[in-house]
């Protein structure tokens, strides 16, 4: 296999006595969708936050594309191509859908210390933003105010914003959370389409989506990776059945 795009080594983070990330090591290879599953409170979001630079780990190392980025801030990581989405949607509600994306294009094309030229009239920004919106299927909504979008559309917008940063690795924190079946289908199709271009780390509770999308699955329980493998491996892993799938199996 090729060099990993992301390599996490012995990452640790505790809140007081609670070890939320407990000696986590994993590798994400280019072109893969690497899913992280685990029960509520397992530390999935906390892990993503450390990978994206929002939170500093207590110890351990994060290596991206061969470079140690453990102490790089969020903006620095985004510029290197490491983008994230949030579990609770974070968009710029008072701006138009197009501007939400254009502002991300603007971040990596030229200085933003320009005080006179009207940004909304910059063709290059708008065209590229529009391309991202079209890609996620939000083209027709471009002129709407972002806060007026439906929940599923906001999820799509968040991915469009991330795409506009030209990511090589996308960290997606429960992109399907709170969406209805139709909205989820749109988002799953979108992730499948993106797969050829962008490597993804996907946190998701929806197991059918995970089994459908993921090339590799890591199972996180109480901050520890207890198992890792393909969908097939994970389905049959005794520890996973016990810790995570147990409830589901009982139901059927």
């Amino acid at each position: 296999m090729s060099q990993p795009l992301l390599e996490v080594t012995s990452l640790r983070k505790s809140y007081g006595a609670l070890a939320v990330t407990n000696d986590v090591s994993l590798k994400v290879f280019p072109g893969q969708i690497h899913a992280i599953i685990g029960p509520n409170g397992a530390g999935k979001t906390t892990l993503i936050s450390q990978l994206s630079g929002q939170l500093a780990p207590d110890s351990g190392e994060v290596r991206y594309d061969g470079e140690v980025i453990t102490h790089l801030d969020m903006a620095g990581r985004v510029r290197r191509g490491l983008a994230r989405s949030f579990q609770l949607t974070r968009i710029l509600p008072g701006l138009s859908v197009l501007e939400n994306v254009a502002i991300a294009v603007q971040a990596r094309t030229g200085s933003s210390f320009r005080f006179w030229q009207v940004a909304a009239q910059e063709r290059a920004l708008n065209d590229e933003a529009m391309a991202c919106l079209t890609e996620v299927g939000l083209g027709p909504q471009a002129m709407r105010l972002a806060r007026t979008l439906s929940h599923g559309e906001k999820r799509q917008l968040e991915i469009a914003i991330a795409l506009a940063t030209k990511p090589r690795l996308l960290l997606l924190d429960e992109p399907l959370a709170g969406t209805g079946p139709e909205e989820a289908e749109i988002l799953i199709a979108l992730m499948l389409r993106l797969k050829s271009r962008v490597t993804m780390m996907l946190i998701e509770h929806d197991m059918s989506a995970v089994f459908q999308l993921a090339d590799f699955i890591s199972v996180l329980v109480y901050g520890e990776i207890v198992a890792g493998g393909t969908a097939e491996d994970i389905r049959n892993h005794p520890k996973v059945r016990e810790a995570y799938l147990g409830e589901e199996e009982e139901g059927t």
Binding site: D73, M74, A83, R90, L92, P93, G94, L95, I103, A119
Partner: peptide, 19 residues
């Protein structure tokens, strides 16, 4: 301007802007 847009962005959601 571009600058104003960024300023408005920080008002709307500063964490989003960092991301």
């Amino acid at each position: 301007s571009r600058f104003g847009r960024v300023l408005i962005g920080t008002r709307e959601d500063s964490l989003r802007m960092e991301a």
